[in-house]
Design a protein around this nucleic acid. Structure first.
Length: 291
DNA sequence: TTGCAGGGGTCAA
DNA sequence: TTGACCCCTGCA
């Protein structure tokens, strides 16, 4: 498509930056005063915005960058029209899909998602973003874009080499020891549980749910987030308080256990459960469902 | 201004 | 199954 110096433009469907970056899946994208979203991923810093509702513009991106990284990161090879149709099995989901029509699930770096979602437990988004940003500033690689400085997320080996006092500087509180423990465990290599697992363990350099759960700071919800937001398992259905509320209010019409909700989602949406979760989550949070 | 409850979960008892 | 956890925010 159009290439003008370091600005790359491409036609897209089903992509609305606000929906993509504010649906709770990522912590390193912020809206600028001019409405563009600026973020760091894969050791690159870019700004993105839509032009004429069907053209995605990526600043500081070459054609090579786009094809080797951003196309996959933004999941542009997937037909979200098909996804929406598949999950819209009732009026509730039809409404949620209409509301979050521009959501796409980003394929984020596995280790970055893993550490970021450890930080997310019992925590609020602005604070999670601050902790992730601080970790990157202190221990990531500097990325220059003109006169602007950005920082990549630190590697697992770097995090593993740090003392707990070093990690405490990101002010993630009691989660810092989880980060430290888990980074150390991962830097030792792939856990045995993952090698034995035959169920979900088909992705390279990643871990399945069974291998994630023993890691410090990773429970069922965080594990599901890691699998979904790294593009490892789209049938994951992370159930946090918001999703629980919306499921109870709109589907169950009563209180329901996490186990019940997970079973329902698996049966009802199958391999697309993760996409359904994201539409519901965004719909529930933006509309205060169940508050 | 100060004080306190509670938060997009996990861990340990 | 339940309370503690670090720290920040909102609100009285």
């Amino acid at each position: 498509m159009n290439i003008n110096s370091n600005i790359y433009k491409t036609k897209v469907k089903d992509f609305i930056p606000k929906h993509v970056f504010e649906c709770g899946q990522c912590f390193r994208w912020t809206m600028q005063d001019d409405g563009k979203y600026t973020g760091v991923a894969g050791g690159r810093a870019v700004s993105v915005y839509m032009e004429n509702e069907d053209t995605l513009v990526i600043e500081n991106c070459t054609e090579e960058d786009f094809h080797s990284f951003w196309h996959d990161y933004f999941d542009l090879g997937r037909d979200y029209g098909e996804i929406k149709e598949a999950v819209s099995k009732d009026d509730i989901m039809k409404e949620a899909v209409r509301f979050g029509s521009g959501i796409r699930l980003l394929k984020q770096d596995f280790n970055e998602v893993l550490i970021s979602f450890i930080i997310s437990s019992n925590n609020r988004i602005p604070r999670i973003m601050k902790s992730v940003e601080t970790l990157s500033k202190l221990y990531g690689e500097k990325i220059l874009w003109g006169s602007r400085e950005f920082f990549s997320f630190p590697t697992i080996n770097t995090l593993a080499s740090l003392s707990l006092e070093d990690i405490n500087l990101c002010r993630a509180g009691f989660r810092c020891k989880y980060i430290s423990n888990t980074a150390k465990a991962l830097s030792m290599g792939r856990p045995d549980t993952c090698k034995e697992c035959t169920l979900d363990c088909h992705f390279e350099n990643k871990l399945c749910r069974k291998a994630l759960l023993p890691l410090s700071g990773i429970g069922p919800k965080v594990a599901d987030c890691i699998l979904l937001f790294s593009g490892s398992d789209y049938s994951s259905f992370p159930t946090d308080v918001w999703v629980k509320r919306v499921m109870e209010e709109l589907y169950f019409k009563r209180e329901a256990s996490l186990k019940e909700i997970a079973a329902f989602a698996r049966d009802y949406w199958g391999e697309y459960a993760g996409f359904a979760q994201q539409y519901l989550f965004y719909y529930a949070r933006e509309n205060g469902i169940g508050v």
